[in-house]
Design a protein around this nucleic acid. Structure first.
Lengths: 192, 192, 192, 192
DNA sequence: TATGAATGAGACTTCATTCAT
DNA sequence: AATGAATGAAGTCTCATTCAT
């Protein structure tokens, strides 16, 4: 087993346990156990529990950003770009419920207290696509002229809520639903 | 001090500490201290910490429901009723940030894992005004014909997101904003 | 068992173990065990291990100072006062080898790094008898006019060395020896 | 790098770290790191940490003995020989504070519990110059007729105390001081 | 009913030592 | 001979809960 393998074992064991049980029901010993390593081994790869938790988040962020940006074309009309990103994001969360639950937990904990939920996509990589999108929309008068934070709330809070309902098994989201929800969110931010 | 007084002292001490510090930084001893009672006394009124935490939530739920229903008139048009409830709810959260923070923490924790965020207003007590409202709207074709859960997500997830941004100091929500946001949410669920 | 009793059990259990084994071979669990209390109980009386260790030292310091000053008469000639204090101190250490070993360990550890070995007697209670004694001696030209720190080294380092030899069982110090050693130390500081 | 080189790297890395940080803040991994070798390599040269620690002490002992005996002439009068050895020893410690700090730590730890501080100079290697000196002095009636251990305490405990004060920065020992202190110690053991 | 000292399981983390390469 | 990743026992401390008063 290579160096990288053990590190990955730890990361995914932690991701799984924390997603399912929450941060405070995920003792390091349990993570080590699930990863098939000794308790001390985790500390070879991660300075402490906080660092491990933050590292998982950072990796998830990258994956989400990469997935969502894949196939994104900046030259389309605003509405199409919005719908594309919105549905791609929701589909990613539906396909990866563990990732979603982890991200949610992280945002609602001291660890991610500083981060904003809506800075989810690409912000760290410099330009934030979503923010750009809204700014462009506002300047074109296609989107309501209200604070960006409000636009985020209107457009993406429902997305997260639906993703949560889905991972909790409260609803089974079908493709038609994804599209209708995306359109409804667009209507909320759209300038009419 | 009467029986009820002590119970209330405990409830509000716990509410305050948990709202500000989070569940896992709210030891029973600290709660007892702030409530001015002995550590063991808490266990006379509440079987254990979980029960206490759930009890606080239930009381908050009642207060929210009562406040929001106050002044609500079932005879108005759908849209007006929606706007009324929506703005009343957001205003309540803005006025009572501790209550909001507690509710948020509860929902994003194992304690409230089973409950749904949208069951916020009175659902558990039988009649759920919001649910009635949406059903009525759907039957009148004033509201989109999609699953109720989705309507809740579209209409109320942004509200919670805005309330959070407000309590975190990320935005200062003014009266004009409240109204515009309410209208935007209506547009999201509205059948056009 | 009263509140004070348990605290004292802990203090003397810790004193004994640390004296015999050293700080790093005195785990809290062992102390708790010897004191006949639960592991967590120690933390009711002492914030953490450091505090416990410092507290023990402070109590010993008090006892030593009290014992040595008992029967001390400031009105005697310098030489007699010196001999009195010196012999009283050595006799105390011979009678209380555990106390001596603890004090020694404390001084040679990060805990007591700031304290000086020679500030042993009464400094914390304001006036340091020994320092006064030396100053008086210098001004009377009865004692060598060299830095106080050197006087302490000349007069008291041998005392501690003898006490150590005794507690380690390397020598059996008899009364005649105590007196001869005291006189020898006086000769070292005496101005001739 | 030769066998001997690596061994020496380890010894001096350990000496430095332990002198500055103490035994319990000197993990083997840190020593290995500073020595530029793998953690496992240490165990090729030294059976375990205790052996390493004892080995360092033994090497220091040799160096001290060699340095002090250098220039020592057995044919001088007792007093001159004493003064010579005493001052040479103090000067060595002042010049090599790391060596002194290590020796001190060693003596005040379980590792050196069995050794006596006054066996410092070559005693274990058979002939002990100091012991010879005192015996000679006693037989000439130049030195007090008391147990050798006491003579050591009177003569050398102050030396170590002064060296400690110096390395801690509490005093700046000048050449004049060294001589006066040596003479004072002679007065303490001198038979008058 | 009320108390709060006492408990001990369990959390995080360190580090001497081993062993496959 | 040399390495350094891996191990897991052991250390300090927290806190929900109990029980004698």
């Amino acid at each position: 087993m290579k160096h990288t393998d053990k590190r990955n074992e730890i990361l995914s064991a932690a991701l799984e346990i924390i997603s399912e049980q929450g941060f405070h029901k995920a003792p390091m010993s349990m993570i080590a156990n699930k990863a098939g390593v000794g308790a001390g081994t985790i500390y070879i790869y991660f300075e402490n529990k906080d660092v491990l938790i933050n590292e998982i988040y950072r990796e998830l962020e990258k994956k989400v950003a990469a997935t969502v940006q894949e196939g994104y074309s900046a030259s389309q009309p605003i509405r199409e770009k919005f719908i594309y990103l919105w549905t791609a994001l929701l589909r990613y969360f539906i396909k990866n419920p563990l990732h979603f639950r982890y991200i949610e937990q992280y945002h609602n904990s001291p660890y991610g207290a500083s981060l904003r939920r809506d800075k989810l996509m690409g912000k760290t990589e410099g330009s934030n696509i979503l923010e750009e999108l809204f700014k462009e929309g506002v300047s074109q008068q296609a989107v309501k002229d209200i604070p960006i934070v409000m636009l985020f709330a209107l457009a993406f809070a429902p997305l997260l809520s639906l993703a949560r309902d889905h991972t909790l098994g409260l609803i089974k989201i079908e493709d038609a639903h994804v599209m209708r929800a995306a359109e409804a969110c667009w209507e909320a931010v759209e300038n009419k």
